[in-house]
Design a protein around this nucleic acid. Structure first.
Lengths: 194, 194
DNA sequence: CCTGAAAGTCAACATCCGTTGACTTAACTG
DNA sequence: CAGTTAAGTCAACGGATGTTGACTTTCAGG
């Protein structure tokens, strides 16, 4: 209680939280452009002007709603040969459940049409993915991180955003088993010279 | 000249082509929502109402502009061990150059926020990718096609749409060499049971 | 040259959007 | 209880969009 921050379930900044939740829901399901402040306000049972009052603009609301923490697991404690599988499991388990308000999915949906959001996603991958991989990898960090990101994002796109057949009709365990060797090779396998 | 269709460089349905070109350019660069008919008309040096006159609506124009042909190569003539590499080379060479008006990129950009476009992309993958793979694969066609699609789409996202570091700063040959074994395994390698 | 259809222009419509300012209600403090 | 401040409502603004209909220009064919 002493070091914890804001133990107070304080007044009506529950509305602030309600706005954020509604925003994440709408942004996640429809993307930035097709989400209107009016719709967010309606879902939060509040007036549209309040949304602007709490956050200054739609863009600022989006920025506040999408605060990314990939919660990358500590892979150094796992045996080297199992790290690829662990990485795949981490992302898939994160996305299973209802993923509509997963911030990473929101970012993916928006980054393809918004250069500022793309820049943000780049920062996340460099700062969190590449950084988590650094202690495991001695050579070609950027190269390996890029390859891993491409395969993981491809799965997110194919299975969760586009719902491609052949990807949606799989159970998580099977998918992990299929993809883990790929990630393991990108992570620690021998890659072709230059 | 007899069986060829419309050898005539006919009248001003060059404008029709101009509209389509401008539409592909804008849709490809900014996505569906951020492309206005007025902007397309301006780029085609024409009045916005003409765009509607030629195509009935913005949605119909999009549908007409995005007519997808992946031009999948015939992989059966290649030796079985090189087919993965060929597949990767095919897609990468297609996307290198200026890709802004590549219909597949336009589809990718739009499908993440538009369910109808996503459905269309699904049809393309089932009808063209899976179909091209059918003669090469004896088991688990959908499974293998889904895995391949996920890795290839992941590359498109990471390198061309999001421009992730570690993916943009590679030459094509190096990228092909890195990814080819993955595709080869998804295509013909032994996959875990069920 | 005249005519009539095709190609193109112009202005306006209805609608939705983000955002703003004036106003009213609720809640807390003295 | 009075009064100040925060929380919330209401109506409107200016702008952009897709789409429409009436009008004008272009131009081939008799």
């Amino acid at each position: 209680m002493s070091t914890d921050e804001v133990p107070t379930p304080t007044k009506s900044q529950r509305t602030r939280a309600a706005i954020l939740a509604a925003a994440r829901d709408h942004f996640g399901r429809f993307g930035y452009d097709r989400t209107s402040i009016r719709a967010i306000a309606a879902e939060a049972s509040i007036d549209p002007s309040m949304v602007i009052r709490y956050f200054t603009s739609k863009q600022a609301l989006f920025a506040a709603a999408v605060d990314v923490d990939l919660m990358m697991p500590d892979l150094t404690t796992a045996s080297a040969s199992r790290r690829g599988r662990l990485l795949v499991e981490h992302f898939l388990s994160r996305w299973e459940g209802e993923l509509s308000d997963d911030v990473l999915v929101i970012l993916l949906r928006t980054a393809v049409t918004d250069e500022l959001v793309a820049e943000r996603l780049r920062t996340v991958f460099v700062g969190q993915v590449a950084e988590a991989l650094r202690p495991l990898v001695d050579d070609d960090l950027r190269r390996r991180a890029g390859l891993i990101a491409s395969q993981l994002m491809g799965i997110a796109m194919a299975r969760y955003l586009l719902r491609l057949p052949g990807m949606v009709d799989r159970d998580v365990a099977g998918l992990v088993a299929d993809v883990a060797p790929t990630i393991q090779r990108y992570l620690a396998g021998k890659l072709p010279a230059v």
